[in-house]
Design a protein around this nucleic acid. Structure first.
Lengths: 174, 174
DNA sequence: GTCTATAAACCGATAGAC
DNA sequence: GTCTATCGGTTTATAGAC
């Protein structure tokens, strides 16, 4: 009844857990299949390759981030930081996976997209051609908020968000 | 003339370069030996194992960070952030290697030490038993500064330091 | 100190039966 | 959809000659 391949979802869930716990590159297909009680070749019925499986897990976050920096005109800083925090918090599992294995992302040719996002986020916040000092403060703001999502993920969303966004705004205005 | 095993140092230099460029886990001993024009087994004369080589590269930074959080009484925030920035900037190559491959560090059982350092840094800054809000602001400050070392490493040290420390102080006081 | 040769294990991926 | 069996490649690490 409308669940033709529950297995595919279970593979992604197991993979996400292992990627989060021990990194993408340090996780083998055998570890994933073992956790589900199936064999390694069975994975290949659901995914064309290992990279295909990895991508399928990262894709939703990547797509939303792409839409975030694309469909948005410059607005006030608080609104931008608020919305960015929401996005990263909502995808914090995948965000941590990316943060914990950037080398793997480079192998998937995603490193350019990430740099492009950083640049466009800064442009939304600072306008075109910002000063070096402004870019440094933006790094403290975005980087500091991102670290909060990871380090304080066990605390209530609202508390972390309001304090982190407030601190980031103060850093921007320093 | 007092350089009985220059090779050992050259191995570490080649390994550090490759670790920085493509991650620890994605670098094989063969790649390292190829770059030096020697063979892979030759490495084992100088290092007991691959992990031993990796550790020898990370050790100086780890030791200095250990001393930093150990031999220091609570002082004013600016001084603490200044000295922390200096330390991370001085070891920014190794710092980036760690940042770019945390999963490998976990395999080396170094993850607990890193968490312990974070806790003690926060304690030096905030005193014992700080509020959740204070800890969140400290994360923005330390995390934001750390990201600056990585992202703006091509800019002049003095400029990055003064702006980043200023922004971190503002985040703390938000 | 460095070499050749090789062991032993693991990896991603495919073939083909059921 | 899942299995067994296996291929081809890579890795860390060791043995032993020089």
């Amino acid at each position: 009844m409308a669940r033709p391949s529950d297995t595919k979802t279970r593979i992604q869930a197991a993979a996400r857990e292992l990627f989060l716990a021990q990194g993408v590159r340090n996780t083998s297909l055998k570890q994933i299949s073992d956790r589900l009680g199936i064999t390694k070749p069975a994975l290949y019925y659901h995914f064309a390759s290992r990279d295909d499986l990895v991508r399928s897990i990262l894709q939703p976050f990547m797509d939303e981030l792409e839409a975030f920096v694309a469909g948005r005109e410059p607005t006030d800083a608080r609104r931008l930081l608020d919305d960015y925090f929401d996005l990263v918090w909502r995808h914090r599992e995948v965000f941590m996976i990316i943060l914990n294995d950037p080398a793997t992302l480079a192998a998937l040719d995603l490193v350019d997209r990430i740099w492009e996002w950083r640049r466009r986020l800064a442009a939304l916040l600072l306008g075109p051609d910002p000063s070096a000092a402004a870019r440094i403060r933006a790094t403290v703001a975005f980087g500091g908020m991102s670290d909060c999502v990871v380090e304080h993920r066990a605390l209530p969303f609202e508390e972390v968000k309001s304090v982190a966004v407030g601190a980031a705004l103060a850093a921007l205005a320093a």
